[in-house]
Computed example of a mutant assay.
Amino acid sequence: MLFAGQGSQHKGMGAEVFPRYPGLVSFASDLLGYDLAALCTENPDGLLSRTEYTQPAIFVVNALHSFERAHREDRPADCYLGHSLGEYNALLAAGVFDFETGLRLVAKRGELMAAASDGGMAAVMDTPEERLWEVLAAHGIDGVDIAGLNTPSQLVIAATPPVLAAALGCLEEAGIRVARLRVSAPFHSRYMEPARVRFEEFLTGFTFAAPATPVVSNVTARPHRPEETARLLAEQLVTPVRWTDCVRSLLDPGDPPEFTEIGGTALTRMVHAITKGV
């Protein structure tokens, strides 16, 4: 089972499940200090696009859809995998922490990531890492990090505003397709180190159980081990999302897995690209 992360938010999200979980929605609203259902369904003042609101909203909506599926389906998932923020829903589904703990974690994560606002991200298409570094080096551009390896044909870079602008300029000049992402900071890069330090300290206040079902880590592309969960969640802020490697770790040519996505369709499209090798 795949869980979508930031970028999957949209006005109206959760409207179909909120009425079926009034207690959880009320609890989440009280914990967060605002009306979560109104945020998701009405998006007042465009708040849903702000990281500190986006992350708790996606976590709660993904969780409720996951609970719905668990009630409907007899057969549980064999493995959970979430993209960036979605990894928290994967860990929740695997019993690593409960709903309240997960919500507290993502609320703090969103707050810290929102505070790191000096930078941006962009998708780079059809360009291997080696070629990317070659083009940037030829123009003397330093300070770019790879923030995500989504498919064999799409990677994501992050940098400060002037460095990102220079990088995109030279990549376009070299005939490489790029697209800025609508994010407020250079997530999953060295520039999130202050947030990582504070989040690591925050995580010491929690205890994590062993996953009842394997959860693949964005950082290692391997299943979470209970003694490493806190460290991996902190490191996730400053290391690339290794989505391609995560998906490939689950592929078995003799028994192709079935993927079910909660929260959107973007991850499913990525899986198709990965399995086709394009």
Rank of each mutant, 00 (worst) to 15 (best):
P211F: 01
G264C: 10
A210E: 12
G205K: 11
E261V: 10
D245A: 13
R242E: 06
T239L: 12
L251F: 14
F259P: 03
Q236T: 00
R248W: 08
P211C: 05
R248Y: 06
H224T: 09
G205P: 05
P253F: 06
T260W: 10
V215R: 00
V216H: 02
E228N: 10
P226M: 07
T265V: 15
C246V: 10
T244D: 02
P223N: 10
V241A: 02
V215L: 05
G264D: 04
G263Y: 01
P214M: 04
T220P: 05
P257Y: 07
P240A: 09
A210L: 12
F208C: 08
T244I: 03
I262M: 14
P240W: 01
T207C: 12
G254N: 08
A221V: 08
M270F: 15
F259I: 05
A266Y: 14
L233H: 08
T265Y: 10
R242G: 10
A212I: 07
F208G: 01
D252E: 14
E227D: 06
E228A: 12
E261L: 03
R269T: 15
P223Y: 09
A210V: 11
A209I: 02
P256E: 12
L267C: 02
A212C: 08
I262V: 15
N218H: 09
L232N: 04
R269N: 14
F206V: 03
T260E: 13
E227Y: 01
